[in-house]
Computed example of a mutant assay.
Amino acid sequence: MTTEHAALIHGEPLPRERVDSFLETRPFRGAGNGATSHDEPAPARRQTEPPSVARQRRRWATQVVVTDELARRACADRGLKVPDEVSPVSVLAVAETDVADLGSIVAAALAHSPAARTLLAALEAEQTVPEAAVRDYYDRNQDRFLTPEALRRGADPFGETAAPQDVLPYEHVREGIARELRKAACRQAFFGWLDQARGGVTYSHGHEHPGDPSHPDHEHRH
Rank of each mutant, 00 (worst) to 15 (best):
G11L: 04
H38N: 14
T36W: 03
A44Q: 11
R57I: 04
R16E: 06
E4Y: 01
R59I: 07
F28R: 14
A42E: 09
R73Y: 00
L8C: 08
A61Q: 04
P41F: 02
A7F: 01
S37V: 04
A6H: 02
R58V: 12
N33K: 13
C75V: 05
E4G: 14
E4M: 09
T62G: 08
C75L: 06
P27D: 14
F28Q: 07
T67F: 01
E49I: 02
I9V: 15
R55L: 13
A7T: 08
R58K: 14
A35R: 07
T2K: 08
S21M: 02
T3L: 14
F28C: 11
Q63Y: 00
R26E: 06
F28A: 12
T36S: 13
V53M: 10
G30R: 11
P51W: 02
D68W: 01
F22W: 09
E49M: 15
P51G: 07
T3M: 11
D20C: 06
H10T: 10
R29F: 00
R45V: 07
E49F: 00
E69V: 09
R18Q: 14
P50M: 04
Q63I: 01
D68S: 12
H5R: 10
P41Q: 11
R72D: 05
R46T: 10
E49D: 10
L14C: 06
L14Q: 03
R57L: 14
R26Q: 13
G34K: 06
S37A: 15
S21P: 00
P50C: 06
E24L: 12
E17V: 12
P50F: 00
H5T: 07
D39A: 15
V64F: 01
C75A: 15
A44M: 08
C75I: 03
T2C: 00
R46Y: 02
P50K: 05
T2W: 00
